[in-house]
Every structure is written in structure tokens, then in C-alpha cells.
């Protein structure tokens, strides 16, 4: 079993305060990256999405 949840979880456990992403003046560590992904999951699933539903992204590169 190996999904995208795993690297996010490992990284936040093994190096929580290490920088994961730098976007302009903002710097996010691995614990925060994992937290934001969990919040994104919560926010999207609260819209009533079910497993396998599609979420599109149209955006320039950035931490979000």
C-alpha cells in the first residue's frame, strides 16, 4: 500500500521543521505542508465530494 498520503506523513514525522516549499516570501515546513493537505482534504470533502471525484486546478505555480 503506497499512496500520496505516505510521503506527506513520513516527511511530517521525520522532519517536521525542515523547509518543504518556498514560494516568494513564504516558507512552509513539512509539518505545515501535511497540515494544509489535511485541511484541503477536509475542505473538499465537506463540499460533498466522494472518493474518486475530480478536482481540477488551473493556476500558475505556487504553494497552494
Amino acid at each position: 500500500m503506497h499512496t500520496f498520503a505516505d510521503p506527506l506523513r513520513y516527511a511530517s514525522r521525520m522532519a517536521p521543521t525542515k523547509t518543504a516549499v518556498i514560494d516568494g516570501n513564504e516558507s512552509i515546513d513539512f509539518a505545515e505542508l501535511h497540515r494544509r493537505c489535511r485541511l484541503l482534504a477536509g475542505g473538499l470533502l465537506a463540499l460533498g465530494l466522494d472518493k474518486g471525484d475530480r478536482v481540477a486546478i488551473l493556476a500558475s505555480n505556487g504553494q497552494r
Partner: peptide, 12 residues
């Protein structure tokens, strides 16, 4: 990464 980790499908 958060979208697929949540069990959803990302469409970039």
C-alpha cells in the same frame, strides 16, 4: 498532492 491523498482525483 493533497487532492489524491484525500482519495480524490486531481486534474491539472
Amino acid at each position: 498532492m493533497g487532492v489524491p491523498a484525500a482519495g480524490l482525483v486531481v486534474v491539472p
